[in-house]
């Protein structure tokens, strides 16, 4: 059995990659994909711990997270499409007009 530390390490790497992606990329879709990566790194952590504890609750949490992520995708993509229709771009630097 793979020790749980390996999973923790992998998920920490995925989470960091996702957070860096959000902070450095400018395309709204790619930022959104990075956020999904962060959510799924948390899912990995839940499943790994659930197996280590031999408890189901962590795995059930993952189902909730997947459902919420799906709802977020629906709303997020709709927002991105709406922005693209008015501005012809989804580069968040070009979308940004509110400042001060």
């Amino acid at each position: 059995m793979v020790p749980v530390q390996y999973f923790v390490g992998l998920s920490a790497i995925l989470f960091t990659l996702g957070a860096l992606g959000v902070l450095t990329r400018r395309n709204a879709i790619i930022i959104f994909m990075s956020i999904e990566l962060m959510l799924n790194s948390a899912n990995l952590l839940f499943v790994a711990f659930a197996r280590a504890f031999e408890a189901l609750s962590g795995q059930i949490f993952v189902f909730f997270v997947m459902t919420v992520a799906a709802a977020e995708v629906a709303v997020g993509l709709a927002l991105i499409v709406a922005v693209f229709r008015t501005k012809d771009t989804i580069n968040i630097d070009e979308v940004s007009s509110l400042r001060g």
Partner: peptide
Amino acid sequence: EEAGLKYFLLGAFAGAFLLYGVAL
């Protein structure tokens, strides 16, 4: 639209932090 997009991206980003914290 811009307000919605910004709120969404940063809100989801914050949600991911919250979730990872819960996992830990």
